[in-house]
Nucleic acid binder design. Structure first.
Lengths: 338, 338
DNA sequence: TTGAAAGCGCTAACAC
DNA sequence: GTGTTAGCGCTTTCAA
């Protein structure tokens, strides 16, 4: 007789005891058969497996972890409501986790420390094996907590404690990739338009831009243009730049949104792209980069890879091989037409 | 003596037995004290609570659910890698779930039925109390499975089985809101530019547009322009539209990306916005709507609300009050300058 | 090769 | 008021 699996029958589910009874063996034997442990006659194993199949038996992971002490779950706490940055990170993380038969609990802290602590407590009550904290900005953040009973890995936004395990993007490398590309395509008078000076990524990329240019024996055209991460700022800054330095022939932008604004600003000022001026962005945000005219050449920071690495490092830590410190994931240039 | 809570000490965590010992009471008493059950002296309760506090006791949810049969977890299966549409849905769902002390497992099926079934099995093994399936398109999808032991709610993409519980956006209402707004602001010659005819949402919005116009005694200018959900299509279609119907004074676009393309196309053809032509989009995708020139008036489909409703309906179903059928969530107009 | 029994951390009857 | 015991579903000794 087949179990009734109608939606309301959630209460009574088939357990290993049912399988054992059906196969005419003891409970322990059924367990061994299904898990490939112990020494059993092949025929017994087959009989148990058949019974499990027939009854649609699904082992109760929770009961199992009660004994093993491991739940094969991790918590992912994001600070930005699964926005632009955490999404790829989460997807990468899920990738690596699934490979280890693990699954993630989702927690959105909305940048609220109170909420974050609440989630932390709930995750610990559920006995997660570890926690990934996915940030939105590359600025340092305060640690999740001290002396936590499970390992924690910070993705994108590193913890201010250098002994924590952090996986971060290569901000300086991104600037280098962009500058190298501009120089390689013949640009010599290169400017930098970016976001707010208060953002670590804006500052770091600006510094690294100057340094990378120096490596080519070049100087930045004007000062870095700090502003906001908006198209409007990009358009505005482009106009300003053109007025101050009409001979500019390359612009590295702090991100794609700004870069799109810059391309619009330049184009509307009569500059022909990419002939007169080359533009490079950062993020490889398809929606923005592909819609720009011309489509943007940009640096992909490898967010998904950051998620994957974070999950791998977390799993390693769970397995007793913590690797504290700063793990830098390299980005790569995506060449389009700009 | 305080427990060592260093990352590697995950094995031995303080349990309710430790708390009981520390407070000098029996295990059962400690349980009652911490859960507010039974009749205990207030002093005893306090003593137990103090002990729990001191030891940093966190109850093991899994052990608890082993007994209660409920895990207070749900699975969220998304088909689109937490993209544009599932994100707000997930956030809304998490909102409602948290209110019921529930937490969500994250599963990304990437539109792959095999992967989806794999996740389903894993979720059932973990004894989730229910499942939310969050889609990307409003087209119907095949059901997750038949005779599942837990309730399922479909968000955004409804199941093809009308007896399933679906929470969907109000596609026709969105078109009505847009048309009403255009008419109210004095537009009379209104066209419709949208995405691919193969998308249910494009077809439904187009139909409803014609109907809504008829309600005002108006007829659509030309046929609906079906194309793709891209800016380039929006620009192209705007130019075409202008050539065929130079006197058009309003355009309702199938989504914000197309609408942004349309505004660019019109503006670049010398049309002054919003004076000569009014444009309305759908999605209220801030990034796109705010960056457009002028910023887009658009219909917000209430995706977050869809997520919230879905979670509420799921919780109701878990509590034995299933509400099968199609639950339509109303959108609202967000007026900007276009 | 299989079965019986103990126990993972907790709650809920029932005794005292 | 508080302690004792059984048992949730499973794995794992150890005995047969």
């Amino acid at each position: 007789m087949t179990e009734d699996l109608s939606p309301q029958a959630a209460g009574r589910r088939v357990g290993i005891a049912d399988v054992a009874a059906r196969a005419g063996v003891s409970l322990g034997t059924a367990s061994k058969a299904l898990n490939g442990r112990g020494n059993l006659r092949e025929e017994t194993r087959a009989r148990v497996r058949a019974a499990a199949e027939e009854l649609g038996f699904a082992p109760n992971t929770n009961a199992r972890s009660l004994l093993s002490g491991r739940t094969f779950t991790v918590g992912i706490i994001t600070t930005d409501s699964y926005g632009r940055f955490s999404i790829p990170v989460m997807r990468g993380a899920e990738d690596s986790l699934a490979a280890g038969e693990m699954i993630a609990f989702l927690c959105d802290s909305r940048d609220d420390p109170i909420r974050e602590q609440h989630h932390l407590r709930k995750l610990l009550e559920r006995r997660v094996d570890g926690i990934i904290v996915a940030g939105r900005r590359t600025d340092e953040r305060r640690p999740l907590g001290r002396d936590l009973p499970v390992p924690v890995v910070y993705a994108l936004a590193p913890s201010s404690d250098p002994d924590d395990c952090n996986v971060v993007s290569d901000e300086r490398g991104a600037a280098r990739l962009a500058v190298d590309h501009l120089v390689k395509t013949g640009r010599r008078r290169i400017a930098h338009i970016t976001g707010p000076h208060s953002h670590a990524s804006a500052r770091e990329r600006a510094d690294a831009t100057i340094e990378a240019l120096a490596g080519h024996g070049l100087r930045l055209v004007g000062e870095p243009y700090f502003g906001s991460w908006t198209e409007a700022w990009g358009r505005f800054a482009a106009a300003q730049l053109l007025r101050a330095h009409p001979d500019v022939d390359g612009v590295f932008c702090g991100n794609d949104v700004v870069a799109r604004g810059v391309t619009d600003g330049l184009r509307e000022a009569g500059v022909s792209l990419p002939m007169q001026v080359g533009v490079v962005g950062v993020d490889n945000w398809a929606l923005v980069a592909e819609a720009a005219r011309p489509p943007l050449t940009t640096v992909d920071l490898g967010l998904e890879e950051i998620g994957r690495r974070a999950a791998e490092l977390l799993i390693a830590a769970i397995d007793g091989h913590p690797q504290p410190g700063r793990h830098v994931v390299a980005g790569h240039l995506v060449v389009r037409e700009s």
